[in-house]
Design a protein around this nucleic acid. Sequence first.
RNA 1: GUGGAUGUAGUUCAAUGGCAGAGCACCGGAUUGUGGUUCCGGGCGUUGGGGGUUCGACUCCCCUCAUCCACCCCA
Length: 415
Amino acid sequence: MEYNIPRGTYDILPEASPARQALYARFLRLAEAFGYHEITTPVFEQAALFERSSGESSDVVQKEMYRFNDRKGRVFALRPEGTAPVVRSYLENRLDLKGENKLCYWGPMFRYDRPQAGRYRQFYQYGIEFIGSDHPYWDAEVISFLWVFFQSLGLKELRLELNSVGCPDCAATYETALRDYYRPHLDQLCPDCLKRFELKPRRLLDCKVPSCKAFAKDAPSQLDYLDQSCAEHFEQVKAFLNLMNVPFTINPGIVRGLDYYTNTAFELIYEGIGAQNSLAGGGRYNGLIEQMGGKSTPAIGFAGGIERLLLALEAEGISLADSPGPDLYVIAMGVEARDFIVHLINELRAGGISVVYDPEKTSFKAQLKAANSSRARFAAIIGEDELAAGQVMLKNLETGQQQAVKADALLQFLG
RNA sequence: GUGGAUGUAGUUCAAUGGCAGAGCACCGGAUUGUGGUUCCGGGCGUUGGGGGUUCGACUCCCCUCAUCCACCCCA
């Protein structure tokens, strides 16, 4: 083989396609039920869109973005996430004026990262964005969308974790407090945590090194550093979630990776698919739209990973769709029978019947065997007798029963 | 980006440095018009790729590519 697939990518083979299609259909159906409409943006955008929105210091921008120049030197990037493009489109197309503020999407994202179970360089995400209100009801509705979606798929081992990272003011005072707490212990932290201390002090809390974990226990919590309105907002989100019967656990360690998040942050955790156990995550981003040049507009959304969801479904033995066999397998004995049925096959197909026929299989046995393994519902057998009578012998491959059917009545019979 | 494991037929896996094999799957056949079971037969490998050591390399060494696991990060 001279060529092979790029690292961290994968082919969606025919056998895997039905499950994904089913997932997509279910997502869209639920999105519609919640009043969301699908939006599809390009897979590449100006690199600056992501650099500014996600934050220059974020890992996504620093080392995971596929950046390239086009022939005129413009700098683009394969999208590493879906929110910024959706917001860009929302502003550019003035969807605010059309009241189009519940948007959902589905498509490939790209991050140059080391591949691992549940982590790819081209991966697929689905998500929703609610734009235009800071009311806590919408936080709860977005979260409940996620919850209902997973419940409807039948997944059991789910954990919804909730946190509030506050507004930029709360976040700043909290990070100061956090640094004050850790500063005396800097010499006892792991090297990674020393970097975290400088760049992302919140990440100190979920370090997995035992010695660091000990400090995390007594570290200050963001929840104690929320100002009046942020605290109230959080309380109301929780209250709405309770009213919606969405179970959640508070985890002050939930940190969103991208800079634009404010207040509500949440993550859906699934144990049992490896280290990459976050099936979906999201939160509020009240500052993003203004930062991107729109007028100050609050918003909230989430994104989930298809690959991880499929892994979770597999882990629980849930199959959404198996590829069905064709409706009909045509068995023709001899060239005259063949010439008789080739046109009939097209008519049936045009009528929406899926038909399999293989002219290279000539022996009766081979054809019937193939009919069986194709999992077709029926086999249509045409030999000399049938040809003379202008009919086919229609055999139910499950029961073995067969009956003669007029050729021109076949479409009606099968349809 | 860091560390570790692995790479042999379509697939799951064997093979002390000495002729590359098995199950499953696939294809064909068992007196030419009735499938799934059974029986018989069949093909397949540049042992991921490249280089080195050796009389001889799937086996040992180096490089490379890929996958998996963990870190990191996240969906």
